[in-house]
Design a protein around this nucleic acid. Structure first.
Lengths: 359, 359
DNA sequence: TTGAAAGCGCTAACAC
DNA sequence: GTGTTAGCGCTTTCAA
């Protein structure tokens, strides 16, 4: 038995389809009419087809959130925030994953023309002219949670990475750390570029020279660990442990009661990582080499995701406002759906530092 | 300027809409016809409306995956597996979050009647008769990644928690741990129930008595930490550290060269947690009380999610086959979409143990 | 207030 | 091989 249609309901209620539609949409009708329709609806278990409806009204009341990697906890925070805003506005949120390639992002945006949703929040890892063009030409409103050139003329809400980097570097200085290394993600990504420049500027602003810099292949834990390996190799820090079994904890007891940097960091006393996953990967590699966090090396991540509290030791992390970015992005999208003529806004969310035990 | 329709393309190409449709769907047409249509499509940037299409053909070529909590890393693994299978089959996957309440799950399943997708994979946290009923009556195929009664007659693929618990307990015995505590999630959930029974049986089978058992409010890190707090309070283990600053690492250096349990666990030498998030929460609480993992207390999680490798020390975890469950669930769904008359299958995925440093 | 009917954009008979 | 047309399920004029 197939799904009942509005016609079936009309027949069962002995009224016209128009009346059923009206009752269902809360338009004026007599008490009795409403009653009869409701009964028929309940009896048949009728549920309106959203495709047919949206074909007619031109809206789906669905919104899409596209992220590159569901495994990145920063997106969890963002998803939650977006979900909250859009569901309060009566929209359904669906999440899709694009993967790391810009071509897939472009395909996703182009695909929106198929009418899947009334709007899109996209947090692109990589941006090129094709992507910008696809966003500009998109049939539904798009807001970018990330950084695209102002001339693109699209709504964006982005983090302030340079400011965030400044917070990180200044925190390190305050805690007497001067020999800092930087583990970035792929520099051909939007966040990778921003972090790179931010780090360089922040160091310069504090008259510091980076001791070392490496670039991970990806914004993932595995890539972070691998990058940490390269970093420490580069610094001439061989693995000190005879076996994995005996590897020391990153948060092992301090060798001295104070929290001043101990020797043994092999030329560095701090690492800043471009996100939390990378930071945790680096901490694992430090531990594998017998280096303690924060005693030998302080570690700072970025994003202040759930992983930062879950990691051990808990990770000091630059809060780039992912929840607020999600919220603002959702609000921007809703506003643009409401009024497509408003001039594009570019919102920048300010960072803060969540100091935990890794620094 | 609004989106071009198939009629606009037909006009531009000087052919009929039927011909455009045919070319677009790869049906026989002359070289020249194909050419003209393709050109017009490219010129206008035409993209077919999937709503109109699916209204006509009765299929959306979208599949939905519904999970309770995007923040739980086990779902990340599952999502990836499902995505892989369905996209290979030419379907688009959309993910939605239900939250922890069964009523929202029911609403989700009922809502599928609106025609959002051709099928649903749902991993319900809580199951009641309403939910089962909604699944049975659902207009589109549903496969449950989790446990529902056999009499429900729905396709399911589930984990073997009891077997997994057995692996965990036996591993502890092998490593000379006998005083084990259990940190479960809410027992009114599907996994909570399964883990509870599994743990009890596994202990009994090995002639072991649980030293303590606590139930977390949720399958989250925060709830795990809180449950750990209650557990250790219950065992009379006061916080030994004067300040948070000096808390010891869970993976601190062993006090003896062997890996035999040291004293200091306050009546326990092992904790099994119902999932990885809970396990990590417990590890944090252990650390806060100066207890070392695994030296004082071994910790075993379940799910073997990405978090298990990311945690420190890396978490021994029961692999409940979330990737395979995702894969099989997706395959089951595809098969049922293909043939709705096949008898429901109930697949059980066997667990394995991923031994890491926490035990 | 209610009903009849047009039409959203597409596909699939059916006729040529 | 191609064009005409009915109709998927719904909403919304327009008349009554």
């Amino acid at each position: 038995m197939s799904r009942p249609t509005i016609a079936a309901v009309a027949r069962a209620a002995g009224v016209s389809v128009a009346s059923v539609s009206r009752v269902l949409n809360g338009l004026p009708a007599t008490e009795e009419m409403a009653e009869r329709v409701q009964r028929a609806v309940a009896e048949l278990g009728y549920v309106p087809d959203s495709r047919a409806r949206s074909l007619k009204v031109g809206r789906t009341f669905q919104l899409t959130l596209a992220v590159a990697d569901v495994g990145n906890p920063v997106y969890v925070t963002m998803m939650r925030a977006v979900e909250e805003v859009v569901s309060a506005a009566g929209y359904r949120l669906v999440v899709t994953t694009t993967g790391p390639d810009v071509v897939d992002e472009v395909a996703l945006v182009r695909g929106m023309a198929r009418g899947y949703a009334d709007g899109l929040v996209i947090s692109p890892l990589r941006v090129d002219d094709d992507l910008i063009k696809s966003i500009q030409e998109c049939d539904v409103p798009v807001v970018v949670a990330g950084n695209v050139p102002a001339r693109a003329g699209v709504d964006t809400v982005r983090a302030n990475s340079p400011k965030g980097m400044l917070l990180a570097v200044e925190h390190l200085l305050t805690t007497q750390r001067h020999k800092v290394a930087f583990v970035n993600g792929p520099v051909d990504t939007v966040p990778g570029t921003a972090r790179s420049k931010g780090f360089t500027d922040a160091m310069k602003a504090n008259s510091l020279n980076p001791v070392a810099q490496v670039e991970a292949d990806d914004f993932t834990f595995a890539a972070g660990r691998e990058a940490g390996r390269r970093l420490l190799d580069q610094l001439g820090l061989e693995t000190t442990q005879p076996s994995a079994e005996g590897a020391r904890a990153p948060g092992g007891e301090a060798s001295s009661p104070s929290s001043f940097p101990a020797a043994g960091g092999g030329g560095i006393d701090a690492v800043i990582a471009a996100n939390d996953l990378l930071a945790v990967g680096v901490m694992h590699e430090l531990a594998a080499r017998g280096l303690r966090v924060p005693d030998d090396v302080a570690v700072i991540g970025m994003d202040d995701s759930e992983l930062a509290e879950q990691s051990f030791p808990p990770l000091t992390s630059v809060n780039l406002g992912s929840a607020e970015r999600g919220r603002r992005a959702a609000e921007l999208l809703l506003a643009r759906i409401e009024d497509d003529t408003r001039t594009p806004r570019r919102i920048v969310v300010q960072p803060s530092l969540s100091v935990r035990r890794s620094s």
